[in-house]
Amino acid sequence: MSDSDDQRLYFLLQRAAHRLRTTADRRMLAAAGITTAQLGALFAVRDEPGLTQQRLARALGLRESAVTGLVGRLTGAGLLARRAHPQEHRAVVLELTDPGEAALRAAQPEIDRFNAELRELLGDDGFTGAARFLRRLAHWES
């Protein structure tokens, strides 16, 4: 790897992330009427029953203020519901609604197609290696 590659890695990661996000958003909107950020929130709520907004923010790596808006849009669309937390009087628990479940089901075939295209582009070893590399970067403490 040359010095110029070292200097451009961050730029290339940003450019690739932008390309992936805009392509995936376009395809998820067409397939299920939701963005990838909304999709991530719906999956997190489905996968962790009793999830609070604070824990959702941590799971998504977002500030709580950003998650407040995201949850507001999802509840406004009827994809999530809020209910009182059973122990913490100021907290709310997020629940996936039937339309939220339907959105996840509608998105799944496009998620599968998207991942298959990435696997074809990168090859099986490249796909697995990229996933491992990005997971390490996502949890890197500098």
Score class of each variant (00 low, 15 high):
6 D>A: 14
7 Q>K: 08
8 R>Y: 03
10 Y>D: 04
12 L>G: 02
14 Q>L: 07
15 R>N: 11
15 R>F: 03
19 R>C: 05
19 R>N: 04
19 R>F: 07
20 L>C: 07
22 T>S: 15
23 T>Y: 01
25 D>Y: 03
25 D>W: 04
26 R>K: 09
27 R>C: 06
29 L>T: 04
31 A>G: 08
40 G>L: 01
41 A>C: 06
41 A>F: 00
42 L>D: 00
43 F>G: 04
44 A>W: 00
49 P>M: 01
50 G>D: 08
51 L>I: 02
51 L>R: 02
51 L>K: 01
51 L>E: 01
52 T>K: 02
53 Q>V: 00
54 Q>N: 13
57 A>T: 11
60 L>E: 06
60 L>F: 11
62 L>Y: 14
62 L>N: 08
67 V>I: 12
68 T>A: 12
69 G>I: 02
69 G>K: 03
72 G>T: 02
74 L>C: 11
74 L>G: 04
80 L>M: 05
85 H>D: 15
85 H>Y: 05
87 Q>D: 08
88 E>Q: 14
89 H>M: 07
91 A>I: 05
94 L>N: 02
96 L>G: 04
96 L>V: 14
97 T>L: 08
101 E>H: 14
102 A>V: 12
105 R>K: 13
105 R>T: 05
106 A>N: 11
108 Q>C: 05
111 I>Y: 10
112 D>M: 10
117 E>A: 15
118 L>H: 05
119 R>F: 10
124 D>S: 13
126 G>Y: 11
126 G>A: 06
126 G>D: 12
130 A>T: 13
130 A>H: 09
132 R>H: 10
134 L>N: 08
137 L>H: 10
139 H>L: 12
141 E>P: 00
141 E>S: 06
141 E>Y: 06
141 E>K: 10
142 S>E: 07
142 S>M: 06
